[in-house]
Amino acid sequence: MERGGGNIGAKKRGGVGEKKELFHVVHKIPVGDSPYVRAKHLQLVEKDPEAAIVWFWKAINAGDRVDSALKDMAVVMKQQDRAEEAIEAIVSFRHLCSKNAQESLDNLLIDLYKKCGRIEEQIELLKHKLKMIYLGEAFNGKATKTARSHGKKFQVSVKQETSRVLGNLGWAYMQQNNYVAAEIVYRKAQTIEPDANKACNLGLCLMKQGRPDEARQMLRDVALRKFSGSDDYKAVSRAEELLQEIELRPGGSPVELEFSIGEEIMGRLDVLINEWTPFQSKRLPIFEEISSFRDQIAC
């Protein structure tokens, strides 16, 4: 009888432990009682973001999972419309994080710069990411990385990441009304991985430069679903709207200043290519045609 009673007690204790473990799995909270664990509990279970930020700070100061604490705190700050504080936190404390965390911190900063309208800093960081890709140092030297979106994990290749970064860079130039530079970047992105949304943006760049015939052809290709992602209703709808705009305003002439800015960007690319020359043995195949940017645009 005593032995049976002992087994029942063990089962009960096991049941409590299993429930506790299941709680951590469901809420995606690490086990323990450290400042970082407390911060995650406040963020995900108690839904108290302000208190969570306080405990993320404590975790960083205590050296408790600093990589995760800094990234998670920046995300919560962004959600609380405290993006400027998040930028300051990352810039000030990223030196405490591991090398493996730096790329994801860059991605966070790019989003934060975009949210704050700090376009110049966004552009510089995007250029830095392109250089890291070119030198073979993106993804910490690996060919792919694991990303997460809407709770699902998936693999991202260097090729896909390059196209994504170029797309973001093109959009940033568009926010500066620098449509020549944006066109250069979008054309390169399209040679790597043709995409309907980027094609729409490229069409808009051509429209803004007074080149309606080129824009019309680009947008018709989207409407006819010749690009990946053209099944997306939003992309097709946007292409059709831009085509209607061309028909209403088919004329227009490019702004000379924009072309001069474009030439300056071309020069910078040439300089960058020269800087990369000593690292040719490490550069990736997708960048083999980068030196032909000018020829592509001239055509």
Rank of each mutant, 00 (worst) to 15 (best):
Q43T: 07
L272T: 10
M266I: 13
K71Q: 11
L242W: 05
R283Q: 12
K226A: 08
R294L: 10
E275L: 14
V91E: 11
V271F: 09
S34Q: 03
K159N: 04
N61F: 06
S68N: 12
F154V: 08
A215R: 02
S34E: 05
R187V: 06
K226V: 03
S157N: 09
N140E: 14
R249V: 02
K142H: 13
K142Q: 14
E256Q: 10
K159P: 00
L44T: 08
D231N: 14
I123S: 01
K145W: 00
A138E: 01
D33T: 15
L257T: 12
A235E: 05
D111P: 00
V180R: 04
A223T: 09
Q175Y: 06
D106P: 00
S34T: 15
E288Q: 14
E121W: 02
E193W: 07
A62S: 15
K40S: 10
N140W: 04
I8V: 15
W55R: 04
R13T: 09
L224G: 07
E275H: 10
L108W: 03
F227R: 07
K115C: 12
E247C: 00
P278L: 12
N140R: 06
K28F: 06
V76T: 12
G210A: 07
L219G: 02
V76L: 08
N168E: 14
G229D: 00
G170Q: 03
L257P: 00
I53Q: 03
Q190I: 04
D295Y: 06
D232M: 06
M218N: 01
A239N: 05
I60F: 00
Y233R: 15
F227W: 03
C200F: 03
F93S: 02
D106Y: 03
D72L: 02
A239V: 05
S163M: 05
R211A: 07
A215T: 03
C116T: 15
G17I: 07
N100L: 10
G6A: 12
A235D: 05
V76M: 07
C200I: 06
P212D: 08
A181N: 07
G6M: 11
G17P: 03
L242K: 05
G9L: 13
Y179D: 04
K129Q: 15
L42E: 05
T146W: 05
A196I: 04
V16P: 00
F154A: 10
R238M: 09
K153F: 12
I87P: 00
L108A: 06
I246S: 04
L44C: 10
G136C: 09
M218D: 00
G170K: 00
S237A: 12
R294V: 10
G17K: 14
A235I: 01
M218S: 03
Q217D: 15
P285K: 13
G251T: 10
K19I: 14
S34Y: 01
R220D: 10
D195A: 09
A39R: 00
I192Q: 09
V165Y: 01
L272F: 07
R283N: 09
G15V: 02
E50W: 07
W57V: 10
Y36K: 09
Y186D: 02
S237D: 11
E258V: 04
A74T: 03
V37I: 08
L224D: 15
F227D: 01
K20Q: 10
R3C: 06
V158S: 06
A62W: 06
N178M: 08
A39P: 01
M1E: 12
A83S: 14
K12Q: 08
P254Y: 07
A181H: 01
V31D: 04
I53A: 08
K114W: 02
Q160C: 06
N178P: 01
I133K: 04
L206T: 01
